[in-house]
């Protein structure tokens, strides 16, 4: 009963936060509420026995997305000539040309309909869990989620890394606005970043390692690395000019690149794309996860940074 109450509370809290985040007249508030919503989501994942997702959500969904949103808001203020107008209620009112209740009607129907559908599902369904369990042995890892991610459905993950790369390419091709004013970070932030970075790296390595048999893995580790990068960037740290060219890009590509190469090699060896032989599976997965972690971290940080670091050099 208590469990139930907790879940209900959590659900209601999620809804309430989402509503507030979406409907808050102040953009900053909205973003902050959204970050809070993300954290609450992480709790929900835990409640749903999905610690892997909880980690990913906390790091990526709430943390990095929040950072991205906040940075965007900051740059948005920069992009606006007049700071005061951002997100002011008056402007918001003026922009709503649509009777707000109108879409609510079909949406209530959506809620009703989808709710009914969800409830109509059978209370018990194994999905593919039995098959996963059956094949877990030969997957090379003992964490089923990692097994699915990197072995059973590794192909999805390969494409997913490509999605990240594409997003970065998109951001770079747009010449996204680089971080705004270059103010001195101040001694506190500087110290903090210097202190925290090794911790982040350590945590990332831990998550990566533990991913094979417990919650964690490349994405979580990568996002922790990314968070370290964000922190460093905020603290005013920049890549050295020499590293922004090929080395940086190599790191960015390493994950999907390694994946593709492994895919090719396995195909040549075993005949099917990404078909690991059971004895090599774990080492291959570790290799892939490692490269992916670096790539994810670098990519997320680069996404946060926005503009193309080496852009000015490219034309010469």
């Amino acid at each position: 009963m208590l469990q139930w109450a907790l879940d209900a509370l959590l659900g209601l809290g999620l809804l309430w936060l989402a509503w507030c985040a979406l409907m808050s007249p102040n953009l900053l508030k909205a973003i902050v509420l959204f970050v809070a919503f993300g954290l609450l989501m992480a709790l929900a994942w835990v409640r749903l026995d999905a610690p892997d997702i909880a980690l990913a959500e906390a790091a990526i969904g709430a943390g990095l997305t929040g950072a991205l949103l906040l940075a965007a808001l900051a740059r948005l203020r920069f992009a606006y000539a007049d700071e005061e107008t951002v997100g002011s209620p008056a402007q918001e009112e003026a922009k709503v040309r649509f009777p707000q209740w109108l879409p609510a009607v079909p949406l209530l129907l959506v809620v009703a309909g989808l709710g009914y559908v969800v409830l109509s599902l059978p209370p018990y369904a194994t999905g593919l869990s039995t098959e996963v369990t059956a094949n877990l042995e030969s997957s090379g890892v003992s964490n089923p989620v990692t097994a699915v991610l990197l072995n059973f459905r590794g192909y999805d993950t390969l494409l997913e890394l490509v999605v990240l790369l594409v997003a970065l390419l998109g951001v770079w091709s747009l010449d996204g606005l680089a971080l705004g004013r270059e103010t001195a970070p101040g001694p506190v932030l500087d110290t903090l970043s210097r202190f925290l970075t090794p911790v982040f790296i350590l945590v990332a390595a831990y998550l990566l390692w533990v991913g094979a048999h417990a919650p964690g893995g490349a994405f979580q580790a990568g996002s922790v690395l990314g968070a370290a990068g964000v922190l460093l960037l905020l603290a005013g740290w920049r890549f050295r000019a020499g590293l922004t060219e090929l080395p940086l890009r190599l790191v960015l590509v390493a994950g999907p690149g390694a994946f593709v190469i492994v895919a090719l090699v396995t195909m040549l060896m075993e005949g099917q794309l990404l078909e690991y032989s059971p004895e090599q599976a774990s080492i291959l997965i570790l290799f892939l996860e490692t490269t992916a972690t670096f790539s994810i971290g670098a990519t997320l940080a680069a996404l946060f940074f926005g503009g193309r670091p080496q852009d000015d050099k490219e034309h010469t």
Binding site: R97, F98, L102, P103, P106, L107, L109, V110, G113
Partner: peptide, 14 residues
């Protein structure tokens, strides 16, 4: 009208 369009989208789905 983005808003109207999405409403359409929803309606279509329904």
């Amino acid at each position: 009208g983005w808003s109207a369009a999405i409403t359409m989208f929803v309606l279509l789905g329904l």
